[in-house]
Design a protein around this nucleic acid. Structure first.
Length: 201
DNA sequence: CAAGAGATCATCT
DNA sequence: GATGATCTCTTGA
């Protein structure tokens, strides 16, 4: 049920695709459960990928990207939001999948409260919103994603129809700007609202 | 519906 | 000292 580290020790595009339909779970206050089906991801692959933080080399912040697959990489963006990633590929190769959106399943009231009252399809339809809803902060950076507080599991929900598009917010990434490395569930209302949704496959 | 501004700070130069 | 893998609100067509 809990997805093991070996799942992430594969090509990042495969992991990004295969994470769609899996369930992100946060056990909070010891016994309560918040969860949601992953409906949107993005792949960040290697030091060559100018959109990947590892393009800046191995630094204090990017060290985790070079580490064990199946590890959480959580960073602060724009001074106020967090983004959750799953480190992928063999140790030593810097890559990760950004978990961008989920369809809430368990703990919806808690998540909605965390989001300042925003509910419906807007609870976790974006990487910053998702971390806010799930109370994911840098405290989880470098945590294993098969731990007992935060993990990804397979509930046998199956694999919904998937579409791809360029990644969002990486206009500066040169030739890597247009790589179709964003994946999302074609029939979900819980994905990031973006003009790219009308493009791609 | 689309476009733009502002919020706010860890990280790296 | 500059820069974001974002979000929300406001403005205007």
């Amino acid at each position: 049920m809990k997805i093991p580290a070996a799942f992430y020790d594969r090509p990042t595009l495969d992991v990004a695709r295969d994470l769609i339909g899996k369930v992100l779970v946060h056990r909070y206050r010891r016994r309560r459960i918040a969860s949601g089906m992953i409906v949107e991801t993005e792949a960040y692959i290697g030091a060559e990928d100018r959109a990947c933080h590892a393009a800046k080399g191995r630094t204090g912040r990017t060290r985790v990207l070079f580490g064990r697959p199946g590890t959480a990489y959580v960073y602060l963006i724009y001074g106020m939001y967090h983004c959750l990633n799953a480190v992928t590929e063999a140790e030593g190769f810097p890559a990760a999948v950004l978990i961008r959106a989920v369809r809430p399943i368990d703990g919806i009231a808690w998540m909605q409260a965390n989001r300042g009252g925003v509910g419906g399809t807007g609870i976790a339809s974006g990487p910053g919103k998702l971390c806010q809803a799930f109370e994911i902060s840098r405290a989880f950076n470098e945590a294993s994603l098969d731990g007992d507080r935060l993990w990804v599991e397979d509930r046998g929900l199956g694999c919904p129809p998937i579409r791809s598009s360029p990644r969002i917010g990486v206009d500066y990434a040169g030739e890597y700007r247009d790589k179709p490395w964003r994946f999302f569930a074609a029939d979900s209302d819980h994905v990031t609202r973006h003009r790219f949704n009308r493009l791609g496959n």
